[in-house]
């Protein structure tokens, strides 16, 4: 029987033991983990994980719900088409820092999208202090344009007081 792939999304207040409880539950159900992202965001623990197995969607949801609830978390299940071993290497990294204000991410990503830049990975955070927050954005992706052209695309943001740094990623293989 062919395995089904699901993307599970779990969110709840952070506390010790969430990952252990959830992954044990998945293991007991005969499910396998694929690629995952597990991260604390603003006091919440967030999990996105690819899982595969023979369970149907309703059975999966039914079995997992009590485990997830015991951890005080919410569960969302999406059947997906997925494959492992299909990593794509980024060739450009964009780092943006600036005084926190509305619209930085939208402006940066709109400029990148217009340049045909494909975002593979984006992490953003608010550093600084409550009174003087600083927004930090790190993006890795793929572009056929040279660094200089991407820099030029983001130039208008610089004029707006945002620091933008575009660098080529030369992955070392050895």
């Amino acid at each position: 029987m062919t395995d089904n792939w699901y993307m599970l999304t779990l969110i709840g207040e952070d506390k010790p033991g969430i990952v252990a409880a959830v992954t044990k539950g998945l293991f007991d159900l005969g499910l396998n983990l694929g690629e995952t992202s597990m991260l604390r965001l603003g006091g919440n623990f967030t999990i996105m994980m690819m899982v595969s197995g023979v369970l149907g969607e309703e059975a999966l949801r039914g079995h997992l719900q009590p485990i997830v609830e015991s951890q005080g978390m919410c569960l969302h299940v999406d059947p997906i088409r997925a494959h492992l071993h299909e990593h794509v290497l980024p060739n450009i990294q964009v780092t943006v820092t600036g005084a926190d204000r509305a619209g930085i991410v939208a402006q940066v990503t709109a400029a990148l999208a217009a340049a045909g830049f494909n975002i593979l990975d984006l992490e953003s955070d608010v550093a600084g202090t409550t009174h003087k927050p600083v927004y930090i954005l790190q993006i890795a992706g793929i572009s056929e344009l040279p660094v200089e052209r991407i820099e030029a695309t983001l130039d208008p943001l610089r004029a707006d007081g945002v620091d933008v740094n575009v660098t080529a990623i030369e992955t070392y293989i050895g």
């Binding site: 990593h87 990623i169 293989i173 050895g174």
Partner: peptide, 13 residues
């Protein structure tokens, strides 16, 4: 920091 991969660790960077 810089991105690395390895012949001994296929499909991971």
């Amino acid at each position: 920091p810089g991105r690395e991969g390895c012949l001994s660790v296929p499909d991971y960077t």
